[in-house]
Each structure stands twice: as structure tokens, then as C-alpha cells.
């Protein structure tokens, strides 16, 4: 049984937008190479290669990866533990016991804020784990809930 909860479907949109930004940088470089090729009479190898790479980056980072990632992302917050599933080609399922959680925080970058989303970051003494894009209210609830459940007992690290 996989963890039950998915992250917000708006995450897909946010990831696509940041993919577009990545792709845009590639295309700026491609255009620069094109200009140089025309000005200095370079061979068409360079422009062909950069064009191909840019097309691939655009497809992968705008269309392919966001939807793959979104399908994979699941989480479950139970009374005594948190389970997170993530990954592109390798599915990773992480189990974090509540008593190991040291602190929880929610983060909001400019893109996430625009779509009223927030990411939840869970830290243990040695590691940090992130649930990347939840509805703001859900993220806040989660933060309250986890920090309440985590403060039950204190072990030596």
C-alpha cells in the first residue's frame, strides 16, 4: 500500500514554470550561439548541437519530469511516524518516526506563494526531509500536528 496523500496538483504547474525558466536560459544560450555563428561564419555543428540540447531540456524539464515526479510524490502522516515517497526513476520510501523529529518548518518561495502553496521541511538530528508543495492551509496544519506529536518524549539524539 502506498502512502495515501498526494501533493497539491498545483505543484505540477509550479514545476512546469520553473522548467520553463530553465529552458529559457538554454534558449538564450542557443540564440547567442546562433548570432555568433552568423557573425563569424562558424560551422553549423555548434548551433545544431545547442539547438538539439535545448529542445531536449525543454521537453524533459517542462513536460516529462514534472508529471513523473508528481505521480511519485506521496506522503502519509500517522500518529507515530511520517512516510514519504519520492523519486523519478528510483522510488524512495522514507520512514521518519515522530520521536526522531527535531523540528518542522514550512517554506514559501515566490513561485509557491503565487499559487498559495508551501513546502514542509522535517528535520531529524541527522537528516532533513521535504514535502515539496502543499496547499498553504494543509502545510500549516501539518506543521502544527507534527510539532505537537514530535514533542512527546526526549531521547538522547
Amino acid at each position: 500500500m502506498e502512502p495515501r496523500n498526494r501533493i497539491s496538483s498545483k505543484a505540477l504547474k509550479v514545476w512546469r514554470i520553473s522548467g520553463v525558466i530553465n529552458a529559457a536560459i538554454c534558449w538564450v544560450i542557443t540564440i547567442a550561439v546562433l548570432v555568433v555563428t552568423i557573425l563569424f561564419d562558424w560551422s553549423y555543428w555548434a548551433i545544431g548541437a545547442t539547438g538539439l540540447i535545448s529542445t531536449a531540456v525543454t521537453y524533459i524539464s517542462v513536460f516529462l519530469f514534472p508529471s513523473m515526479k508528481w505521480k511519485r510524490w506521496r506522503y502519509d502522516v500517522r500518529e507515530k511516524e511520517i512516510e514519504i515517497q519520492s523519486g523519478l526513476f528510483i522510488i524512495k520510501r522514507t520512514l521518519v518516526p515522530m520521536i526522531r523529529v527535531q523540528h518542522v518548518e514550512t517554506n514559501q518561495g515566490p513561485l509557491l506563494r503565487k499559487y498559495q502553496l508551501a513546502s514542509v521541511e522535517i528535520s531529524t538530528a541527522a537528516t532533513t526531509h521535504e514535502i515539496p508543495a502543499l496547499e498553504l492551509t494543509e502545510a500549516d496544519e501539518l506543521r502544527f500536528y507534527i510539532s505537537k506529536m514530535a514533542s512527546v518524549e526526549e531521547d538522547d539524539v
Partner: peptide
């Protein structure tokens, strides 16, 4: 143990195999 995780790649899942990792704190890191 701080965290426990299981990882399965596409090829592993075809063979019913998986990778596990258990993490403790050591020094200041994992």
C-alpha cells in the same frame, strides 16, 4: 535509528528486489 528508507528502481521492481538504508547520527552528520 533516525530514518529508514527503501528504494526500488524500475529494474529492481521487475526482479522483486529493493535497496534499504538505515541512518543514525554520527558526529554532526548522518
Amino acid at each position: 535509528l533516525q530514518v529508514f528508507d527503501r528504494r526500488v528502481s524500475y529494474f529492481q521492481s521487475r526482479k522483486q528486489l529493493s535497496t534499504i538504508a538505515a541512518t543514525v547520527k554520527s558526529g554532526a552528520g548522518p
